[in-house]
Structure formats: C-alpha cells, structure tokens
Amino acid sequence: MNDNACKSGSGLEKKLAAGGFAVTAELGPPKSADIDAIAKKAACLKGVVDAVNITDNQTAIVRVSSIATAKLALDMGLEPIMQMTCRDRNRLAIQADVLGAYLLGIRNMLCLTGDHQCFGNHADARYVFDLDSLQLVRMVKRMRDDKVFACGQDIRTSKKSEPKEPRMYIGAAANPFGDPFEFRAARLEKKVKAGVDFVQTQCIYDMDRFSRWMEHVRDRGLHRACKILAGVTPLKSAGMARYMRDQVAGIIVPDDYVKRMADAKDPKEEGIRICVEQIERIRQIEGVAGIHVMAIEWEEKVAEIVEKAGLRKNGE
C-alpha cells in the first residue's frame, strides 16, 4: 500500500497496512509538571516500539494532559497514540483538541469511554459522557473522511476556504473479558461500523477466552476490517496478580498464573517470562496484527520483553 492510500500520516497505520506485526506500548504521564519523568519513560521506549499510547487521566487521576504529553513524546522521537476519554470532555472540547493535536503532529488517537471518576482522586467531579466511545470514533472518522464536525458543519475557516480536516488513525479499546461475553464481538463489530481502524485489547491473561473471542471476531470477519493488537501486561508480583484477578473489573487472571507468581523465586523475572510466553501464544492466533505491551510503571522492561519475544521493531 502506498502512502496515499493511508488515511492519516501515521507510521503505525503504514506498518499495519503493509502487513507488519506492530508493537505498541504505553506511557502514562506523571502526576506533576515533571518533564524529566516523561523523558525517562520516553527514553525506555524510543526505537523499541512502533507507537506509544499516551494515557488520558488514567484511572481518573489528574496527570499531565495526553495531548501535551503526546507532543512531548513526539519531540522525543516517539510516535504517540493520544488517548482520549469521554469522561472529561464534551463534543466541543474533543473536536477542538483533535484539531489542535493534529496541528501538533499527532496522527493516532485512541477513543475510550474512560474509567468512572469514582476510581480516581476527584470522585466528587461531575462527569461528562456526552458521547460514548463508539460515537467518539464515528465523530473523529467523520471529521477525517467527510470533513465535517459533529453538528454537520464543514471543517473550514471560512465559507470560501478549503476544508482543513484533522486526519487521525483511529483506534479504540476492545475488552474480550467483560460481560456479556457473547455481546463482546458484536460490540467490536459496531466499532468497526463506526469507523475504527485499529483496536487494542484489554490485557490478556485468560488465553482460552481470548482465543474464543478471536474466533467470534474471525467469524464476523472483523480481523480484516480493523487491525487487532492484543494487550499484555507483565505481572510484577503475586500481589499484583491477585489484585488484577480480584479487584480490577473486566480482567480475568487464571489462578495458574497467580500460583506461578507466588511460587517464583524471582517474581519479576517470572512475570516477564509469563508475558513472553503469552506473546508467543498470541502470535499463533490468526487475525492478531500486533501486540500492545502495557507495562504499568515498568516502561524500562518493555525493551526486554520485546527482545525476548522476538519482536524487534521493524524486524519481522
């Protein structure tokens, strides 16, 4: 596929469109105006992965904005995927930020519903949820392909000027582990219909359920309609494994992994080993176009995971 056939100027899109197996990671912005923290994480990921998700007030805790961090990451040599949730912004704010992000050189965007504010440090805040993630996908797609705002007006400076639309490579999340299970693939199909280009899944521990979900996905032909990046999160400790199993809604951790982590002499090493094994198994599954490594506050391990799993950037 040549450059012109791509919908955005995104490097991630180019790689996936050319049939490459993509690797993405996550960079969580800091909870203070600490540019060094961003630079440190960025340095760990530079040259290691194809693109990096910049989270948006993750878990409803105030952090440096995703748009600003994405721009900084871009300047530091990464390709950012700007995350945006429906929790904090209404359709005016989102469209303004998409325009702004595009001008700053950001070409990938991940459209999310967002964790409820009750999980964060401003539980008494008023939520927005003007749109849901699917409506957000569709709005950004229409901005790109139809050159119109959500209200239907053309995206141009004046009546006489040419439209100047923001062209984003549009992503969304998919959770194969949430309930109702049978509705999960249907929901992805809706996201595809809404115009999503790629999805990153919730972190996978329950491989059987993920495989079954991928079967549903293939039955519906969705792996051909959008690129599916499988999410993994290396476990750091048995405590983390238990926490993920018991406390995090929408994540299933099989007891086997919890046991392995508990029995391990070096749990961190075991966590990496499990993660690499998972990646190897995921790569066998038809229809998976890449891996999304969410090493939560453990960005320095991404290179090692990518290396051990044989996923060197550009090294197919």
Partner: peptide
C-alpha cells in the same frame, strides 16, 4: 456512564 452503544469494559 449513560452509554448508548453497549457496555463498557467494566461490566
């Protein structure tokens, strides 16, 4: 979250 197009990941 007043979602109109199906459940969020937290169900």
């Amino acid at each position: 979250k007043s979602l109109l197009n199906g459940p969020c990941g937290g169900s």
